[in-house]
């Protein structure tokens, strides 16, 4: 990133943080409800030294990653299948729409009844969220492939295997990457949401416990870390996407 882009990306958060600090120092903001950034930084360092923050971050990341892996894999298979076969699409569409439209967290009690207490229902919930994002994106991507490309490949004698390998898969790769990026964000938010409701550890649990004890410094540190993780992974996956997909999808618009 060039210097000007860094400036554009950072000036607003910087202004907000500095104003917060100044307003808290002047007593305009109640320091109990809104502890200033300097205090939060000190709290974060303290929590890091005790190893507490790392423990919660790792718990959240592990849960998010496990659900993400299962959900993305299943979503890819379902999405490709739905794109390739109208029967599969019509069979799965009502279920996927129903889950898509309902708040995922509302499914947790049912999953606990079904799968028992423990981490399994939490991870399945996260996987479900990722599955929806990925499968919906992939169906559209497969169906959005211009039929001319399929006809072209067939004209040169491509069979089913060659069509899949040389047309369908490469054509949906950009959409698949976008879906994976969105799914990871979904996995993080779902992991933290689930932890808010039911979990012995994780950033969501940290937020919930801090809120119960009105330990606002810890509350804000946990929220800030969760937001930071989101920004970090979003940027990393974006960067990876740009490195890996070298052809330009806008060719289709020609």
């Amino acid at each position: 990133m060039t210097a000007s882009r860094w400036v554009a990306a950072l000036w607003l958060p910087a202004v907000l943080l500095v104003s917060w600090q100044v307003l808290a120092d002047q007593g305009v903001l109640n320091a109990v409800f809104f502890p200033p950034p300097a205090t939060l930084a000190a709290t974060a360092v303290e929590m890091l030294r005790e190893g507490e923050l790392q423990r919660h971050i790792l718990a959240t990341l592990r849960r998010a990653t496990e659900g993400f892996a299962v959900g993305v894999l299943a979503g890819m298979v379902a999405g490709l299948g739905m794109g390739a076969s109208p029967f599969v699409r019509r069979s799965l569409d009502p279920l996927i729409s129903a889950v898509w439209a309902s708040p995922k967290l509302s499914l947790l009690p049912m999953l606990i009844l079904l799968l028992g207490i423990g981490d399994t229902p939490r991870i399945v919930l996260i996987a479900l969220g990722c599955f929806i994002v990925v499968s919906l994106h992939l169906v559209d991507a497969v169906r959005g492939i211009h039929p001319a490309y399929v006809e072209l490949a067939r004209n040169y004698g491509a069979g089913r295997a060659a069509l899949l390998r040389r047309v369908y898969l490469p054509a949906v790769t950009p959409a698949a990457f976008t879906a994976v990026r969105l799914a990871f964000g979904r996995a993080l938010t779902l992991a933290i949401s689930v932890e808010l409701v039911s979990s012995p550890e994780g950033l969501g649990n940290l937020i919930f416990m801090a809120w119960q004890g009105l330990l606002t410094e810890r509350l804000y540190v946990a929220v800030g870390v969760a937001a930071g993780l989101g920004v970090f992974f979003h940027a990393t996956l974006r960067w990876l996407e740009r490195r890996l997909i070298t052809w330009r999808a806008d060719e289709k618009a020609r």
Partner: peptide, 13 residues
């Protein structure tokens, strides 16, 4: 073989 006017090349190759 057909040579099409549009969409004649695979954009990903």
């Amino acid at each position: 073989l057909i040579v099409f006017q549009e969409h004649g090349l695979f954009p990903w190759m």
